[in-house]
């Protein structure tokens, strides 16, 4: 049989390839491997080989992946213990919000990363595995999956995962980027209070910490302190730290933090308000 392609058929094929190209673009991998301007420089290869491996039971990638990152952050927990907390039998899966909430219940701050491959790699450089979500199917026919990134290899263009029943899954970086992008680049690190992420903004850190504090007030102080040291200009972190100290009855220090904040930003109304309240309680004349 001879293929005799007409001009029209060739044009159609070209169109098809163009469409496929558009579907499978991997801008982050391309930028990283070409060393584009502005791409952070990361070490060529990382593998956190000592990361614990919990092979998943049927559909239960959520509990297995969460147990992995919790264990690595210093909380010893088996996937079985997490099943009732994050696994929804009728959906045969786990919701992202429940993964975050359960991390908090185990005393860890769940911080979503910014969604860049390099964010993930920089956390791995610090020895911190990253919980990721992937859509292994199509956008319209999703197959959601949780895994834990434990390494990468720039030369081989691979991401290393603890995934499902495979201890070290070497996924081509392009494939990972596509499946990860289809899950909105969802990636989370678990922080012990007092440790900081490599790449984050004060707002992102505040949101994660304020959510954590709702059920972990007793252990949140080192996290506020470390955060404010890292982002001393952040109004939100200063307010959060000051509020915690206030609730603990350490009014003088709580006021001091607000005074520092107001020196930088005298018009920040919430701080003026709180400082006034604290000063009244300290029985001092109100200056403002």
């Amino acid at each position: 049989m001879r293929f005799n392609w007409s001009a029209r058929q060739r044009a159609l094929l070209l169109l098809l390839f163009a469409l496929l190209q558009a579907c499978v673009a991997t801008p982050q991998t391309d930028a990283l491997l070409q060393g584009d301007d502005g791409t952070p420089v990361v070490q060529p290869r990382i593998y956190l080989s000592s990361t614990v491996f919990y092979p998943q039971s049927q559909y239960q990638c959520g509990p297995a992946a969460l147990a992995t990152v919790l264990t690595e952050s210093g909380v010893l927990v088996e996937p079985d213990e997490l099943v009732s907390q994050v696994y929804l039998p009728e959906r045969q899966g786990s919701l992202q919000v429940e993964m975050l909430a359960t991390s908090r219940r185990y005393g860890r701050i769940a911080l979503p990363l910014g969604g860049q491959l390099t964010d993930l790699m920089q956390e791995l450089e610090q020895g911190r595995p990253v919980l990721v979500m992937q859509n292994l199917g199509l956008k319209s026919l999703p197959q959601w999956h949780y895994a834990v990134a434990v390494g990468y290899d720039l030369a081989n263009e691979e991401i290393l995962l603890r995934s499902g029943t495979v201890e070290t899954l070497r996924t081509p970086m392009t494939v990972f980027e596509r499946t990860w992008a289809r899950a909105d680049h969802w990636s989370v690190v678990l922080l012990e209070p007092g440790t900081l992420p490599v790449n984050s903004t004060a707002q992102q850190y505040f949101t994660a910490l304020a959510s954590f504090e709702q059920i972990n007030e007793d252990t949140s102080e080192p996290a506020w302190k470390a955060g404010l040291e890292r982002w001393p200009e952040s109004e939100l972190l200063a307010m959060g730290y000051s509020n915690l100290l206030y609730r603990k009855g350490r009014l003088a220090v709580a006021a001091e933090i607000l005074e520092l904040l107001l020196q930088r930003n005298p018009d920040y109304q919430p701080a003026r308000n709180n400082l006034q309240q604290i000063r009244q309680q300290l029985d001092e004349p109100t200056a403002n």
Binding site: Q203, T207, Q214, M239, N243, L244, N273, N274, Q277
Partner: peptide, 18 residues
Amino acid sequence: NEGMVTTQQLLSQQQHSE
């Protein structure tokens, strides 16, 4: 809340603007 602006209020404000 004794007239204090609480952390949780700031959090919901933050989430609202996001």
